[in-house]
Write a protein that binds this DNA or RNA. Sequence first.
DNA 1: GCTAAAATCGCACGAACGTTCGCATAGTTC
DNA 2: GAACTATGCGAACGTTCGTGCGATTTTAGC
Lengths: 195, 195
Amino acid sequence: MNKGAQTRAAILDHAVAIAGVHGLAGMSIARLAGVTGMSKSGLFGHFGSKAALQRAVLETAAEQLARSVLGPAQREPTGEARLRSLFSRWLAWIDADERPGGCPLLFASIELAERPGELRDFLVDHQEIWIDRIRQMCQKAVAEGNFREGLDTRQFAFEFHGIGLGFNFARRFLADSRALTHANTALDRLIAAAS
Amino acid sequence: MNKGAQTRAAILDHAVAIAGVHGLAGMSIARLAGVTGMSKSGLFGHFGSKAALQRAVLETAAEQLARSVLGPAQREPTGEARLRSLFSRWLAWIDADERPGGCPLLFASIELAERPGELRDFLVDHQEIWIDRIRQMCQKAVAEGNFREGLDTRQFAFEFHGIGLGFNFARRFLADSRALTHANTALDRLIAAAS
DNA sequence: GCTAAAATCGCACGAACGTTCGCATAGTTC
DNA sequence: GAACTATGCGAACGTTCGTGCGATTTTAGC
């Protein structure tokens, strides 16, 4: 890896963390330069614009999510087991200490919900794909007989997603120690109703 | 009402809307002055600091929520009916056109999740009370025999809240037309399991 | 080890930010 | 209507924002 690419990756690691705390808009180049030990202009040169930096942050976060949540889950056996694996890895990703603010993509989605533009489009695409992945896994569980025939898989994905959002809120904002138990219980109930 | 209080209220109405789109940090005094037709300094004088303005915005939003969601629900008969009323009014509040960005308190909670301070404390208090209200209504439904004895009311409140978050996300961010149906189905399932 | 390219820096810019101030005007009270 | 206060404005402050540019250092290929 080039020196440039190397530096760029290091910058983005810090940037994801900052964006998780202060949001994409609150992630200023001066602050980012401070924590990376670079000059503003030196850092800026890697991206060319603030928007490009924000875009790179979202792409980095999406890659990290794919690598540490979706990827491992897809190596599990299909059906209910894979769904459960995805769920627990997703919660762990949200709760990870090294990434303050929980899931940066969730934060950015709320932040940009009413602000049309390239960044928002990227996020909508990502989140729609994410929810559809859940639906597909659910569909697979139906096909394999884990879940009952005729199950509304879209409804399942909606509720699955809602539990994750509730966990993100309870854990990161309210610092509720019971959040994990509640989320797991909710998933058990969801799966039981689907079986 | 004084001229001052009147103007202040008008400012805050606009401020809640702007905060719902751009967040508390992105709600600049210049922008707010623009939509209210005032000068920056004239507007600023009503609050004395940006932080005080932000605080007033949160208090205004909390009052609006209490007036249009919690209050009416508490005039319904207790038990399951009141919970259902609270739920549908909550969804309507999230989906209201005149308040872009959904629930401004939800947005602010995510925004300030990792930024300790007076504003965050206010929000944590508010959200804990909100979730506890759900729990209390659930408890009442148990006492009245709508719900089964021994029901975990905290768990119920967690799931109830998660459905609302899922609806907020699907409706405001993904613009999913099926969100309302999904949320209502999820609530039915939650209540059926509690009965 | 030389050289071209890439990376980084210091510096400066215009714009927007929150905030302050003195002054005019509008509202309220008698 | 006079006296007083509350309200609002315009101009300016110092700071921070994203961005551009020329100079300088570091890296990579021969």
